[in-house]
Amino acid sequence: MAKNLATIAILSGLILVLVVATNLLGVRLYDRIAINLCIALVLVLGLQVFMGNSGILSFAHIGFMGIGAYTTAVLTIPMRMKGMSLPDLYPILAGVELSPYIAILIGGLVAAAVAAAVSYPLMRLSDAAAVITSFALLVVLHTILTNWSEMTNGPRTLFGLPRATDLNLAAGAAILAVVAAVAFKESRTGLLLRSTRDDEVAAGAMGAHIPRLRWQAFILSALFAGIGGALWGHFITSFSPKAFFLKETFVILGMLVIGGANTVTGAVFGTIIVTVAFESLRALESGINQAQIFTEQVVGLTEIVLALAMIAVLSLRPGGLFATQEIGPLFSRLVRKKED
């Protein structure tokens, strides 16, 4: 227990340091990066809740992020703007204008509800079948977001969300996500689910109801994704369904895998490392583009580096940087060693 608290304290402390440092620096660019980082933390921790504990790869996560973002958009875009940004919206919803903070929560709950409704039968599947169905689910969600013009304005950009996500809110959400992820991992459900990850047959024989355990994790995971998406929506204020597809899936997955999917610590460190690397590479890319060294725009460099890093990490250290141990126990052992 103390070790779990230590893990939470260290990881939350890390996020707090980030907030304080960003505020002290007062550079707007860093502000943007820090908020993005915190939102990414919510998303990656959400994926960790399902993937890390069940051992099953899910591609659908970003789809639930999209659900969260669009839900909060429909609920919060000011009435006078709705005519422009959502021209086909159902009349019942046209008059709704909630506070973003409530709408963000609703966004998470709607994503969780959709996950609960569609995913139960999928939880029986393992291996390739599970991955292909989750991939199929992402495509289904993406197709719906792209074509349900009444709710999403179709493939066009949706604009007009109030800007409500600041660094404090994003960091608060990230800390809550850390606490929830650790709490779930150490809960009875989490422990049972992890035992199914290591040996499906044995855990089943012991009486673990595998589909239900996975389902619970999946719903919680979708809740995180929905809230993350909603936070992002109120940060970026305009987006299109393209923002919730394979490219983003790849980034989120890369963060989790590089850090280590099995641990909350891995999710946090993976997100931080990849975000820092990403932003540096982005800066490099735009530097090259501004200097006009090449006739064409340089794009894709960032993704190439991330792809290579993922392959390298998985080949050399298949469990990621933090494969099995959380930082709490690791840290306390380090301290004890010094005392000896």
């Binding site: 997955l253 794009v299 894709g300 993704e303 190439i304 991330l306 792809a307 998985l314």
Partner: peptide
């Protein structure tokens, strides 16, 4: 994951 990464790698190499 690695095959997904390789796919992204090739696509972005074409972009770049």
């Amino acid at each position: 994951i690695t095959s997904f990464a390789f796919s992204t790698l090739l696509q972005n190499a074409a972009l770049l």
